[in-house]
Design a binder for these strands. Structure first.
Length: 506
DNA sequence: GAGTTTGAAACT
DNA sequence: CAGTTTCAAACTC
């Protein structure tokens, strides 16, 4: 009996565009969640399901028959969620697109969407595959979840490797049969779809497309047309100029999407990489927002905008170490002032090896350092924390300060003054639009950040533990906790009033 | 623009 | 894991 038979799933139907957003399911299988989330709840070759729309906009599905796998060559599938939702989505999206063994992959692409999947070759993926599972952290979902999707199993690759024919040849393995060639995808590519077709992009080495992927796709799937949406789908970036994909090595990688056409008539765009990091994108958006809000390009805004494509000046690292910002952001150097640069399309092998080395050393090396916890006005927090010793975390040497976020308990800095109540803060609150204090919306509750909530809960728990340890009665313990809660609320309210320059007295 | 300072990354 | 070295950006003059 199929493990999924009879299971119920509930998903919210987005009434505006018909897409389905998974809320929860009663079965643990993320695979099924993906099926639903991407609108593949019906149709030939898929699990037959009963659908009923509830009054609360949730659709409940019940699997009536076991899954049957479509024998046709599968094509990865995306739903209609926005690109950002894919970026921020749990690993299920990735598992779905790459790891689905045939089940999912036939229905037409409902929209043009980008799918980021890392950046390097299958060789690098293999190294990631071995180290990704234990490397997940709190922010893995906030970034690109680059490694999460590597776990699913290709029917011909029981160990879960998804490799190209070229890579397989190098590995001395027999190429898989054609029906599994959908999985002959260099995993760290960008998947984009249109009209039932798919293309994979390596953002960081776009020239790899004509070298491997495009050839494979053309010959094995006879795709007549591939239209590739840029990774900046939701940003509506302008289209670049067309050129032949086989000449893409000569393409100037400007960071904007560039349309290419292969000799087979396949069109696609080359766009910045997935970890042209979240910080990168955040900075760009922040700059744009600031400029829009202020009606002009402020110095800070301009700096932030330029930061994302600031040319590096590396001299000794060949731009193949994380010292190089371009490399660290998953970008190739372009218009940089670096010397002896290998971070370009002419040095793919060296670059791929360097990426592999970095990932072996640190599987999260290319993840954004700043988690994007957009709650209230809090931009996020540094995933590792800084280690500043002499700057007081009030200079751009400090990664937290540079990212305009407060230092947290994660940081190991000495003499930190980059915190909310710091009297020595040199910048005004207005200079820190994403800080805890600054509150452009005027909503005082924005001061109640996740850190504040966490601290409050910690205080309450401490009192609960103390009461338990002392053997107090439940009534006594309850009173202690409530009193502590009152104290916490007092402090929060005081902080709110202080931030708004209003007198407060208790 | 040269020199210094700084802290992350890399190395041992 | 800790200490040291290397590196490139930030900063100062």
């Amino acid at each position: 009996m199929n493990e999924l038979d009879g299971q119920e799933y509930s998903y919210r139907r987005d009434l505006t565009d018909g897409s389905r957003v998974p809320l929860h399911h009663t079965h643990e299988s993320p695979r099924m969640a993906n099926l639903f989330s991407h609108g593949m709840h019906s149709g030939p070759g898929y699990a037959r399901m009963e659908e009923s729309l509830r009054e609360d906009d949730y659709t409940t599905y019940r699997i009536l028959h076991p899954l049957t796998y479509d024998p046709l060559p599968p094509v990865a599938h995306f739903g209609s969620a926005s690109y950002s939702e894919y970026l921020l989505a749990p690993s299920s999206h990735y598992q779905h697109a790459l790891g689905q063994p045939y089940s999912s992959i036939r229905s037409p692409w409902p929209s043009q969407e980008a799918f980021h999947y890392g950046m390097s070759s299958a060789e690098i993926c293999r190294s990631v595959n071995t180290i990704s599972s234990e490397s997940a952290d709190d922010y893995s979902m906030e970034g690109y979840s680059t490694h999460q999707g590597f776990r699913h199993v290709n029917i011909n690759q029981p160990h879960g490797l998804l490799v190209s024919p070229h890579d397989q040849h190098e590995m001395g393995e027999k190429p898989p049969v054609q029906t599994s060639n959908i999985c002959q995808i260099l995993r760290p590519m960008q998947f984009v779809c249109d009209g039932g077709q798919v293309v994979m992009l390596n953002h960081c080495s776009p020239d790899q497309i004509p070298h491997s992927l495009m050839k494979d796709l053309n010959t094995e799937f006879s795709l007549s047309k591939l239209s590739v949406q840029s990774c900046s789908t939701e940003d509506q970036l302008p289209q670049g100029q067309a050129s032949d994909a086989r000449r893409s090595e000569k393409t100037v990688f400007t960071g904007l999407p560039q349309t290419h056409t292969t000799s087979a008539g396949v069109m696609f765009n080359l766009t910045p990489g997935p970890y042209a990091s979240q910080l990168h994108q955040t900075l760009c958006r922040t700059a744009t927002v600031e400029q829009e809000e202020e009606g002009h390009t402020t110095g800070r805004g301009r700096v932030k905008w330029e930061k994302s494509k600031r040319p590096c000046n590396c001299t000794k690292s060949q731009c193949l170490k994380l010292y190089c910002e371009c490399f660290a952001n998953g970008e190739v150097c372009n218009n940089c002032k670096c010397i002896n640069c290998f971070n370009n399309t002419e040095h793919d092998l060296e670059r791929a090896q360097a990426i592999k080395t970095c990932l072996e050393r640190n599987p999260g090396a290319f993840r954004p350092k700043i988690g994007c916890k957009k709650q209230g006005n809090v931009k996020g927090r540094h995933t590792k924390g800084c280690n500043c010793k002499r700057s007081g975390c009030l200079k751009n040497y400090c990664e937290c300060y540079e990212a305009k976020i407060m230092c947290t308990s994660t940081c190991k800095c000495v003499g930190c003054r980059n915190y909310e109540e710091s009297p020595s803060k040199k910048r005004s609150d207005r200079d820190r639009p994403d800080s805890i204090i600054y509150n452009p919306t005027g909503c005082p509750l924005a001061c109640i950040t996740p850190d504040v909530v966490e601290a409050t809960c910690g205080c309450l728990l401490a009192h609960a533990e103390e009461a338990e340890k002392e053997g107090y009665t439940s009534a006594h313990a309850e009173r202690m906790i409530l009193e502590e809660f009152g104290q916490c609320l007092t402090q929060i309210v005081r902080s709110i009033f202080k931030s708004t320059n209003v007198q407060f007295s208790v």
